[in-house]
Write a protein that binds this DNA or RNA. Sequence first.
DNA 1: GCCTGATGTAAAAGCTATTTACATGAGCTG
DNA 2: CAGCTCATGTAAATAGCTTTTACATCAGGC
Lengths: 215, 215
Amino acid sequence: MSWSKDEKDGPRGYHHGNLKEALVRAALELIAQKGSAGFTFAEAARWAGVSPAAPYRHFRDRDDLLANVALRGFEQFEIALARAWDDGRPDALTALERMGKAYLAFARAEPAYYSAMFESGVPPASTPELRAAGERAFAVLREAAEKVCSQMPPKGRPPALMVALHIWATSHGIASLFGRGDAAQRTLPMSAEELLEAGVLVYLRGLGVTAGSGS
Amino acid sequence: MSWSKDEKDGPRGYHHGNLKEALVRAALELIAQKGSAGFTFAEAARWAGVSPAAPYRHFRDRDDLLANVALRGFEQFEIALARAWDDGRPDALTALERMGKAYLAFARAEPAYYSAMFESGVPPASTPELRAAGERAFAVLREAAEKVCSQMPPKGRPPALMVALHIWATSHGIASLFGRGDAAQRTLPMSAEELLEAGVLVYLRGLGVTAGSGS
DNA sequence: GCCTGATGTAAAAGCTATTTACATGAGCTG
DNA sequence: CAGCTCATGTAAATAGCTTTTACATCAGGC
């Protein structure tokens, strides 16, 4: 009771006790350090203090672990976006901007998750669960787009799905290109957040949305 | 004169004669097939018919080859964008839309280049040449943004750099997320081209640009 | 015709991924 | 509590990749 299943990684016996979680944590650490490409199954095992074959008891192969990390990433991502959206309080536009910031903040705060989710080469539909998790995260954005659109005059109202895709693509593009102030990244004459906020504002104005018009 | 330095890869002697080019072509082929992550130095060597150590005479290591592919990719990319822009003929907006289509067309037609450029983990500034090539490609986009902006009334005219970054991010986001109809990619209720064109039109309207107002 | 540098090869060390046969021990069953 | 059994680890082996080092070949200049 005092050696495993705990957060503390003290000495252990033959069995690890919580290897799956330990491997995921190791993967996150390694991906954050060396990118999803440089991440190694064997090193994750070493990091967890087990033999190179042990991880195969929990993941089919290296890609399966990566996909699992991506899955958890989408779940965290959904939570982060939903929290920022906060049901559109106090108003849809304010909440949308907040969600944009949350998008970039997630990419910066959780580069390992973000990398596994979008840059690891794991197909978004490699498993049904992964696909579903990705769709749930996108659904938050779509919900926001729907609320924004619903406040527009019905005449000439754009499809909410399209709006959601535009905002997603722009956010993702900014995060991918300039997201982490990383030295391994392009630099920018302004912050990524400012760039995204400005872009979304211009875009919404193009849709006919005027700030301060909704509840 | 009949066995090497040619396109034809007939039998060869001790020396290959054009190994560097052959390796780049092999890399493009392999990256297109298995992604920039699955690409292997050894396999490229095999594909070129040389020993696994031979490539080291032309590239410092695997990443160096990848960076070289990315460099050539940016050069081709610049050409493709510049051709589409065509100095803003017949008018800036038409040319800008054409360039957007060229962006997506490049990502789809040259997935190996695109992958090496943006998804391989090669830092954009890993070499000065790579950085410069990337900047030259972006400069085409920036030039277009400047022309579009210059047609707006000076009052409230947005910074062209920002406009260029917005369009770049959106294009890149769409290309990354939905770019190749690939099974390994997300699907879309519309074509990537339509999505981008609509997004840019809305964005430009938000800037106050009205279609058919410039020469 | 001979040197020399550029370009390849061979062989080896040190990784990694993955499989297979075997070991351990946690928890259920009686 | 004894014994069984399955989940979880280990050891060892195969196969492939990366990179280095010492050696081989040959094209072109003197």
